[in-house]
Design a protein around this nucleic acid. Structure first.
Lengths: 120, 120
DNA sequence: CTGGATCCACCCTGATACTG
DNA sequence: CAGTATCAGGGTGGATCCAG
């Protein structure tokens, strides 16, 4: 009755993809995931509060979920420092770093598209 | 009362993106869009029925919507041949072709991830 | 052959309030 | 500071029937 949060890590087991791109998009497709990954890639390890501030209007709950999913997919590493007050740091894993080959073009194309869109 | 279908092309006007990647993902993020784009990139121009068969369990309505959105975003070109029976051909535009720089890494990473996932 | 119209169901996101 | 619980809303995919 409390394992209704683990639905996101069951997809990688039985899912059949029509296209390899689906596998990627399912992992970075969350609304804030690419922003998180880019942030960690550019700024290095960040605390929860830092990420929250950088992503402006994201709520704690949603951010936590995105982070948990990213962690479950092995893209980021979550480290808890046993201190008071609590301190949690997120950073990219090796697999997360390998996403730069995906995120960079994604970012580049987005910038070009938006620019072209405005110039019309 | 009949313009409730144009909601998908209004996002590019007022949307503020937290990250350039969002702009890209919003255009290729549909469930079948990457598959469509990859298909058109690899197989060239295709008819509606062809695409439908290639993407197996997609329904006509959903496929049509994805195609319309891709067309509205200027990624594919829709050509109607005034024949009986009707013949409609979809093909990539220049902008659509430029997406290969995004789709290729997306595809590559997906293949590697799935493979690594299974090898665990 | 191609595409529109409905109705439906699910998932994801978001707002708020609360806990350690 | 970090995370959870609950509830509500919107978007999106899907099944089916209908039309040119």
């Amino acid at each position: 009755m409390e394992n209704d949060k683990t639905n996101f890590d069951s997809r990688s087991l039985d899912k059949t993809y029509h296209n390899p791109t689906e596998a990627t998009l399912e992992r970075i497709g969350g609304k804030w995931k690419t922003a998180i990954l880019c942030l960690l890639a550019e700024q290095g390890a960040q605390r929860n509060g830092e990420i929250m501030r950088m992503l402006s209007p994201v709520t704690q709950k949603v951010l936590t979920r995105q982070l948990k999913e990213l962690e479950a997919d092995g893209l980021i590493l979550r480290t808890v420092f046993p201190e008071v007050p609590p301190k949690v740091v997120y950073e990219l894993t090796e697999s997360g770093w390998s996403l730069r080959t995906v995120l960079d073009p994604l970012c580049e194309w987005g910038k070009r598209f938006v620019k072209a869109d405005k110039s019309v």
